[in-house]
Amino acid sequence: MAFHSIALIFVFQLLQIPEIDAKVSSIIVFGDSTVDSGNNNFIATVLKSDFRPYGRDFDGGQSTGRFSNGRVPTDFISEAFGLKPTVPPYLDPAYSIKDFASGVCFASAGTGYDNVTSRVLSVIPLWKELEYFKEYKSRLEGYLGRKKAKKILTKALYIISMGTNDFLENYYVLPHRSFEFSPEDYQKFLVGIARSFITEIYHLGARKISLTGLPPMGCLPLERTLNWGNCVARYNYVAREFNQKSKALVEILNDELSGIQLVFSNPYYILYKIIRDPQSFGFVTAATACCGTGRFEMGYLCNEHDPFTCTDANQYVFWDSFHPTEKTNGILAHHAARTSLAIFK
């Protein structure tokens, strides 16, 4: 009994992200389903999660469009910086520019750096996320005036999180890019897009930016299902190589762009550690997910009518075959807040 009590206290402490005494005005998010807080609810795509059991552990049990049973990492990071506990999606008409002034999400589940990736499931491409940001900037200036809006945009923390879909939904599935590029050349191609994107938002006023690397994508439950229960080593190798190139880009841009504070946030090793030894973090398993059989379900295949869905998501590292549980997201956010993002406090 005492052991279980200690374990519960340990997990509780992990999930409590202490507030950082940071001079960050807002959290501005670009990316894919790792950070999408509901934008896909408002576009014509099959890739949605605005239904149960998604969001069943979110405040009020709401299916918000987040690909999790609860919050995503950027929600926890916002809270860690003393801002609101959730970052609202830009396309949700329930929110106004007043709500977006302290945090806004432009991310779209299923997207990537590559425009071809976004076309696979008809989601928002990165260039469109940038257009929405420009529109937001103009709206913010109209709401607060140029001087105040500029101050918010300069002090905001910009989080970029994408890339997994470029490989797992595009390069390794569709023929076009794999014929055109070797894996290494495709990595360079994506890093080049990331470079252009960061430079663009820098010229629009961004100064504090976090570029998030790839997770051990070969260990996602779906990939393990397709590989007899084992992680796909070559996918993990590509993720590590891509992260090295992304980290090098961060170093280059910090030298090239005056006044920028650009960091590389690497989720690979902390998540890999959780996957290899889930019990040490208070989980039961990482091999299968909570939803359904935990082997292939995601999106509409993960629904409330599936009798196999687990009753306690906190025992699982992954919620569906592609996405972490809220508990895992909290641990990843805690790690980022204490490492790469600590510079912004």
Rank of each mutant, 00 (worst) to 15 (best):
K48F: 05
K48Y: 10
K48W: 06
S49C: 09
D50V: 02
F51S: 09
F51D: 01
F51I: 09
R52A: 15
R52H: 15
P53G: 05
P53V: 04
P53S: 05
Y54T: 03
G55K: 02
D57N: 12
F58H: 14
F58N: 10
F58T: 06
D59G: 14
G60K: 06
G61E: 12
Q62T: 15
S63Q: 10
T64N: 10
T64I: 03
G65R: 05
G65W: 09
R66A: 08
F67Q: 14
F67W: 09
F67C: 12
V72N: 11
V72S: 06
V72T: 08
V72R: 14
V72D: 07
V72E: 10
V72K: 04
T74M: 12
T74K: 05
T74I: 14
D75H: 00
D75M: 04
F76V: 06
I77A: 02
I77K: 01
S78F: 04
S78V: 03
S78T: 00
S78Y: 00
E79F: 12
E79C: 12
A80D: 11
F81Q: 11
G82W: 01
G82E: 00
G82C: 11
L83W: 11
P88Q: 06
P88L: 00
P88C: 08
P88S: 04
P88A: 03
P89G: 07
P89L: 10
P89K: 04
P89H: 01
Y90C: 13
L91F: 05
L91Y: 04
P93F: 05
P93M: 08
P93G: 09
Y95F: 12
Y95T: 02
S96F: 08
S96Y: 11
S96G: 10
I97E: 11
K98D: 01
K98F: 13
K98A: 12
A101Y: 00
A101C: 12
A101T: 13
S102I: 10
S102P: 14
G103F: 01
G103I: 06
V104F: 08
V104E: 03
F106S: 03
F106T: 11
S108W: 10
A109S: 12
G110I: 05
T111V: 04
T111E: 13
G112W: 07
G112T: 06
N115A: 15
N115G: 12
N115M: 14
